[in-house]
Design a protein around this nucleic acid. Sequence first.
DNA 1: CAATCTATTTAGAATCAGTATAATATCAGA
DNA 2: TCTGATATTATACTGATTCTAAATAGATTG
Lengths: 155, 155
Amino acid sequence: MFPSAAPSQDHIQARYEAMLNALRRADYRLTPQRMAVCHYLAETRSHPTPSEIFHAVKEQFPTISRATVYNTVTVLKELGEIIELPAGGGTGVRYETDITPHVNLTCTRCGRIYDVSLDNLEDILKQINERTDFQLTNFHIEGYGLCPNCQTSNS
Amino acid sequence: MFPSAAPSQDHIQARYEAMLNALRRADYRLTPQRMAVCHYLAETRSHPTPSEIFHAVKEQFPTISRATVYNTVTVLKELGEIIELPAGGGTGVRYETDITPHVNLTCTRCGRIYDVSLDNLEDILKQINERTDFQLTNFHIEGYGLCPNCQTSNS
DNA sequence: CAATCTATTTAGAATCAGTATAATATCAGA
DNA sequence: TCTGATATTATACTGATTCTAAATAGATTG
Ligand SMILES: [Zn+2]
Ligand SMILES: [Zn+2]
Ligand SMILES: [Zn+2]
Ligand SMILES: [Zn+2]
């Protein structure tokens, strides 16, 4: 069951294109740095911190600066292509790169985040639209508790 | 519809007692500072930052330090009495003081968080329990988009 | 192509949130 | 009261995030 399956090449490509299109639509230039950040976000199945993104992209672009990473994720967040997550166990924010509704199970002891997909989420969307005038972009579910590993550990 | 109704006195009192009991059960001392933090968390209907908690409690305890606030919210978080939320619009973490499952609608433009209650959330709990070995403490739903105010503003 | 303008990136400084430390204070129990 | 454990406080420290100014890259115009 854990961990979730790695995304397929097709899925990675689709997410990558979606991010680039979002940038294009909003009249942002598709610089190599931005594209590299998007590509990493599309292919990772983790919920990376800005620092993790920085180090990963640095492999392709040794000269990239942290500021560019921060700028890019801020834009992508505003465009609804990624979502800022709670700090969880560690420090600093993490980014949710899978914007399709699903559950993030965060272990309150070790801080790991597990993805779980659910059925019948249309009902939630329907209820929110019925009860509010919010223009909803996306949503997901945050669950908290102990992961299987931490339930047995006695530390 | 917006904003959510203020909690009743009874509800505030119940939440307050629940936090104190959680501290008691875990063998933490009920110091005046901790009680003041709990009381503020029980009565607020916002999703406060540590800084907001600090300033609010400072009214009652002019000598309280930020460290005590951080210590207390960390303990309460570990006990499952409050939940750490995404940074959202502003900077730094916020705390969810309503641990009953509900929706937090975060406006991606102005950063405001609106609470919405939903029906039929037992199904989510059931699905998570069926599909994982996670020991779930609590969960809630995070929605993102534009609030009614920000849909019409042209800035 | 040259000149110019704008968007973007970069490096590093500055700021801010959060954590760690050590001294002091509080409190329970012997 | 004495003692040991727990909690609070002020402050120092670390690391995350933002800000700033200069350099770069692209687009546009003549
Ligand atoms: Zn765990
Ligand atoms: Zn996820
Ligand atoms: Zn708004
Ligand atoms: Zn809420």
